[in-house]
Amino acid sequence: MKKLFLFVFAFCTVLMAQAQMSPRFGIKAGVNYAGLEGDDAGDNDRIFGAHAGVFVSLPLVEDFFSIKPEALYSMKGAESQDDDFELKLNYIDVPVLAQINAGPLYFEAGPQASFRVSGKIETDLGSTDDLEDLGYKSFLFGYAAGIGLASAPLGLSVGVRYSGDASKITDDDDTKIRNSVFMLTLGYMFPSR
């Protein structure tokens, strides 16, 4: 994990040195609508969760194109249709997004690393938070893409994003299940212009 953060920091430093434009920092929070997808996901229902974190916008072409690394605490999981099974997974998501601004509208997409910090399985028979023994991975690689509206003078933004995993959530070779999350986000970037 330290190597990933060091790589992101070095990458952003090089980009900023070339661009010679001021970075802008921000905070964001919102709602997740999380579920599971894949060949073995079954007919599980999505669950609501939340996300919150920080980001930095590194402009490469002023007011048009920027790179935006983020660090978000994000709640994911799913539940069975008859409510006798619920999977709750909590991650630190680190997307590194390319963002294109078209007036107040913006588009973003890029890779994402996810580090599981906790999790719990609840059934009618009881619950467990020992997911390592059940084969749940602590690191996943994925992607994120979204669209939103931003007001540069106010520093406020609202956006929708889809976040998915390219890697399976378990080590089991016979089970193909991945996280699938729709996100509604409110953000504030400072200093606002």
Rank of each mutant, 00 (worst) to 15 (best):
K2R: 14
L6T: 14
F7Y: 11
V8L: 14
F9M: 09
T13S: 15
M16G: 06
M16I: 04
M16Y: 03
A17D: 13
A19L: 12
Q20E: 15
Q20T: 10
M21K: 15
S22C: 05
P23F: 10
P23E: 08
F25P: 01
A29S: 06
Y33Q: 12
Y33V: 13
G35K: 09
G38P: 06
A41C: 11
N44G: 15
N44W: 10
D45S: 15
D45I: 02
G49E: 07
A50L: 15
H51Q: 15
G53Y: 00
V54Y: 02
S57L: 01
L58I: 15
P59Y: 10
E62Q: 14
D63L: 08
D63E: 15
F64D: 06
K68R: 15
P69A: 07
L72R: 01
K76G: 06
S80I: 05
D83M: 11
D84I: 09
F85A: 04
E86G: 02
K88M: 04
K88C: 01
N90P: 00
I92M: 14
D93I: 01
P95M: 00
V96T: 06
I100P: 00
I100N: 01
G103M: 12
P104L: 10
F107T: 04
E108H: 08
G110E: 00
G110H: 00
P111A: 09
P111F: 03
Q112K: 08
V117T: 13
G119T: 06
K120I: 01
I121V: 12
G126P: 08
G126A: 10
T128F: 07
T128C: 04
D130H: 02
L134W: 05
Y136E: 09
Y136P: 03
K137H: 01
K137W: 02
F139Q: 12
L140H: 10
L140Y: 09
F141D: 02
Y143F: 15
Y143K: 07
A144R: 01
A144W: 00
G148R: 13
G148E: 10
L149G: 02
A150G: 14
A150W: 03
S151N: 15
P153G: 03
L154V: 07
G155K: 03
V158Y: 12
G159F: 07
G159N: 11
S163N: 11
S163E: 14
K168R: 13
K168M: 05
T170W: 10
T170K: 10
D171V: 02
D171C: 01
D171A: 04
D173Q: 12
D173R: 12
T175R: 13
I177N: 07
N179V: 11
N179K: 13
L184E: 05
L186D: 01
G187L: 05
G187Y: 06
R193I: 12
